[in-house]
Amino acid sequence: MPNVVVCVKPIPDPRHWDRLFLDPETGVLKRAGIPPALNPLDKNALEVALQLKERFGWEVTVVSMAPPDTTKALREALAMGADRVYLASDKALAGADTLATAYTLAQLIRKKASPFHLVICGNISLDGSTSQVPAQIAHYLGIPHITHATHVETEDGQLFTITMNIKKGELVFRCTTPFLLAVTKDVNLPRLVNVMGIIAAETKPLEVIDARELELDLDKVGLKGSPTRVRGLFIPEIKRRREILTGEPEEVAEELLNKLHEAGVL
């Protein structure tokens, strides 16, 4: 049966972000006590997959890379209607940047969710906000990718028409499967989880897989496999400065221009 893969990321529940804070001494983001939740745009991705399941009878496989205590959030994907979840979880994967994450997820898809028709991601995660992982997964899987999708259409489940909003209009792509699709929140309104879904989710498979089983190259995963180095995290200090320039209008304009150049604004 054709398989559609949805990549999801458990993040600190955005409803409790007022409890997040950055330790000014260590630069570490403190998230203690904030429960995990599915990244909101990943629910849009899952909704696209579930609608394809309803139309074409495909199976929906959810993949994720996260600590093992996030299974509660992943169970929500099963309650929405996904058929199974594979979670890559291992201490060796900790500290991964987008490239190491994409490598791990691509390997998970190859090992557990192939062959696939389509891979669908949320376009961006609310916590990391890099938007890099979807394209990087496509790279590792060797398939084309379309990101920033606002509309998805297909007649036969083979040829897809994807719309992407750009600044002054729309880009429309036509693409045959397999490919990777990254969607924005405009693509749909994700369904609510109902009681029957919660009960059904209890018996659906949620498998946690370690690095060894995935046969990962340990030089490419976790902190070790991440070329990105975080030099520091800080809350930007925003200050208003006021300076009054006096003189003839031409002189003041010239001086203002110089100051803006000096400040690197222009």
């Binding site: 939740a37 509660k72 169970r75 929500e76 309650a79 609510l192 989880v193 109902n194 009681v195 919660i198 009960i199 989710a201 209890e202």
Partner: peptide, 18 residues
Amino acid sequence: PEKLELLRKSVAEFAERE
């Protein structure tokens, strides 16, 4: 139980949306 926590979250979202 985990399933009741998910129920709470789901019903809260339903109430907020509908």
